[in-house]
Design a protein around this nucleic acid. Sequence first.
RNA 1: GGGCCCGUAGCCUAGCCAGGAUAGGGCAUCAGACUCCUAAUCUGAGGGUCCCGGGUUCAAAUCCCGGCGGGUCCGCCA
Length: 616
Amino acid sequence: MNLMFRKLHRDVRKSVKEAIIELGWDLPDNIPIEEPPRPDMGDVATSVAFELASKLKRSPVKINRELMEVIKKPTIFKEIKSVGPYLNFFINYQNYSESVLETVDEDYGKLETIHEKIILEHTSANPNGPLHIGHIRNSILGDSLSRILSNSGCTVETQYYVNDMGRQIAMVVWGLLNLKFDPSKLADQSPKDIDPYQQIDNIIKEHSKLNDLEGTYLNGLKNILYLQIFIDAELRDHQIGELYFQVNQELKNNPDLKGGVDELLRVYERGNDPLLGFFFKEAVNACLEGMDPTLQRLHVHHKRFIWESKFVRNGSVDEIITKLKKDGHTQENEILCLNLEDYGIEKELVLMRSDGTSLYSTRDLAYHLEKSNESDVVIDILGSDHKLAIQQISIVLGFLDGKSPEVIFYEFITLPEGSMSTRRGVFISVDDLLEESTERAMEEIKKRRDDLSNDEAREIAEKIGVGAVRFYIARLSPEKHIVFKWDEALSFERGCASIQYAHARACKILQKAEFDSSTVNLEGILGKYDLKSPERELVKVISQFTWVVEESARSRKVHLVSQYCLDLASAFNKFYKSMPVIGSEEEEFRLALVDKSRITLRNSLELLGIDAPESM
RNA sequence: GGGCCCGUAGCCUAGCCAGGAUAGGGCAUCAGACUCCUAAUCUGAGGGUCCCGGGUUCAAAUCCCGGCGGGUCCGCCA
């Protein structure tokens, strides 16, 4: 672990403190550390003189003059200058560079293990259609954060909360039981002259036991078979989405059908109709089977999928309700609910419908209690529209002796024409986004490389395309509302591609020079060489990486890492442009610097789930 | 109506929690750089009422109060 950058701050504080003591002044509460606005003004600065000014009744400039008389320069610095009210410290880059290069290894950025288990829930999109660009903000923030937290030494378990009990899923199941898929939308690989449902009828005829099924269940079975036989796994979420859209149309035209959906929900919750349970499970599974390849392609991973129905089946929902009732928190008339007015929330929290079924919030309460029991810290990634709901949940978790989750809220991604909606079938799917992104990357590659095979180009285009999408989301602070625009999302200039490009450049130099890190002796590598400013800047940025990992993990801010990646790439590209490496006087040092840049670029991109191609 | 979030050049954005140097970047615009490790790059220029108005402070994009504009929530939805 590289603590060089941290040491700079520590050494500044220490020497300032000692100087203040020597002058017999009171130590201020805080010795602020800043970075000077320009590199030629120094590397680390402190405005401690401001802190002292009011107590000492002297001007900051005067105070600095006195501090400068007695202050001892830490060895890592070359000099200290007093500029107005600031003390500016200049790094001794000969020493510093050697220390930094020595401590950067292939695992650079991985911090010491701390024994803290975090359960991080993210994505958790309803299985009623494919993932769209509104969902990926959740996935990308969650997955990146999980990588950052793991790197910072925590144990992170990522979970996807599968909603298999809500009304929306019941609507999908209703569609499965009462409607048909549209075979005209089958992919081209199926011959047009066959009727899928005809084939399915034949299959059912051949299985005598299936012949007993009738009515909606028979229809449901046909639809399940349709999905499994005729639809590729990766497209099943799209089919479910279209079915869901169709059901919404039906319901709009005939609101009486709502009763049928409610009945499905009641029966499923009671859990005594195995066949209906089968249809719920199959509907949800079909959708998850379609989402899985999408998430894989984005490098988004979940350790566990937790099905919501579990908390009804295993009795924890009942236990919670019993406990809340017993402790006198609840109010009961037709429904069972909690009055949270004492906690500043006007809106009561309903725990049970008048028909006795549970609600999302009831089950979510049980889920959060489980997460609380299984971890030290619970983190949720949620759209900011869930703020009130999670606030209610948190209060009730307090009644139940559970930990409140830490929540990272993000604002919506909308289209220029308005908000997205699975229900209305208005959205851009992640699959389409990735397809477009890799396609555009492919065009760029073809523009500049004619030496690559199609497969090689494809492979690189995939890394660039996925990287562009992930970076587009990860670079922005989550509380910022995004209006999705293709050209902004898939820009290859000064964005992710420029970072990947810096990495590819580094790889190319090392490859060309046949660099072997194992034979390099870093000691005394610099001799008396006075580093040029692009080299100094690059060394400094490399040394900041550990601190960035720490800081982004602590503050749970993914975009700090994105910003860092850009800074690092920029420092490297400037160095690359202005300093010859191969064949130069300082080749040995510069190759080592290129190698450390390569590692840091790769590891920082890794935190964002972005591949670093070795050639572009 | 009430709660929460956002408002920084034509566009996107960091900085705000922990107030300090000329408000950082990027896109777009303009001017320049490939006989030299890939120009997905680099160098330079112009462009700002940090939404508005008060207040606190030696010092406010940052903290406090009041507005304005946009988003979102206030379901026996999830």
